[in-house]
Simulated assay, not measured.
Amino acid sequence: MSMRVGEAALKEVMVDVHTGPFRFRYLSERPGGDDLPTLNSATVEVAGRNWFTAQLLMRGFEVSTPVVDRGVDLIVFREVGQQGIRALPLQLKCASGESFGLDRKYEGRGIPLAYIWNVTANPVAFLMTYEEALAVLGAKAVASKSWIDGGKYAVTRVGADLRQRLLPFESRWEWLAERLMAQPESGAS
């Protein structure tokens, strides 16, 4: 059997899900081995946003996606009372592997940052404020030419030290809920 480049072999599985048989297809083999294809950054961002959205929904948050990205990637909200809502914008940083970076343009905006790693395998989320992200980067990064001249710093090879500094921020769902509940309520008189 010949396959075009980029085409994957599909395997069908029959599953009985309470009401009857359903047919699912999943990728069983990929030409050239089991490695996932290289994904562009836009695809990684969509996959990360979708995974993160699912995590939020399963934890009782409502989620909205802005039509145009002007520094806000998601808005989490909850209904409050009969007519009000509380909403909190989020900035997402999605990666197929492990990377950590910060841009000074988020300073002073009060928008929590969500770093989603390993989007294509076993995703994990780190949730923090800009100030916390700056502290995680550390003094060495803030003293770098990249930060001083360009206002940006990125780590593409995460070492044990950085990973250790990020641990307190992993899966901070309660923290996010607290931040959301601290937001002003719409419709309040």
Score class of each variant (00 low, 15 high):
Ala54Val: 06
Leu57Trp: 00
Ser64Thr: 06
Thr65Ala: 12
Thr65Pro: 06
Pro66Trp: 09
Val68Cys: 04
Asp69Met: 05
Asp69Tyr: 04
Arg70Met: 14
Val72Leu: 06
Ile75Ser: 03
Glu79Cys: 12
Val80Tyr: 08
Gln82Leu: 13
Gln83His: 11
Gly84Asp: 11
Ile85Arg: 15
Ile85Asp: 09
Ile85His: 11
Arg86Leu: 12
Ala87Ile: 09
Ala87Asn: 04
Leu90Tyr: 07
Leu90Ser: 10
Cys94Tyr: 06
Ala95Phe: 03
Ser96Pro: 01
Ser96Phe: 01
Gly97Ile: 02
Gly97Gln: 03
Leu102Arg: 03
Arg104Phe: 10
Arg104Gly: 05
Glu107Trp: 02
Glu107Asn: 03
Gly108Met: 12
Gly108Leu: 14
Gly110Phe: 00
Ile111Pro: 04
Ile111Gly: 01
Pro112Ser: 03
Leu113Cys: 01
Leu113Pro: 03
Ala114Val: 15
Tyr115Thr: 00
Asn118Cys: 04
Val119Ala: 06
Val119Gly: 06
Ala121Asn: 14
Asn122Pro: 00
Asn122Leu: 14
Pro123Gln: 05
Phe126Ser: 03
Phe126His: 14
Met128His: 06
Glu131His: 01
Glu132Lys: 05
Ala133Asp: 01
Ala135Phe: 00
Ala135His: 06
Val136Tyr: 01
Leu137Gln: 06
Gly138Lys: 08
Gly138Thr: 11
Lys140Gln: 14
Lys140Gly: 09
Ala141Leu: 09
Ser146Ala: 15
Trp147Thr: 10
Gly151Val: 06
Tyr153Gly: 03
Ala154Val: 11
Val155Gly: 02
Thr156Val: 13
Thr156Glu: 04
Gly159Tyr: 04
Ala160Met: 08
Ala160Ile: 10
Asp161Val: 15
Leu162Thr: 00
Arg163Phe: 01
Arg165Thr: 05
Arg165Pro: 05
Ser171Cys: 09
Trp173Ile: 07
Trp175Ile: 11
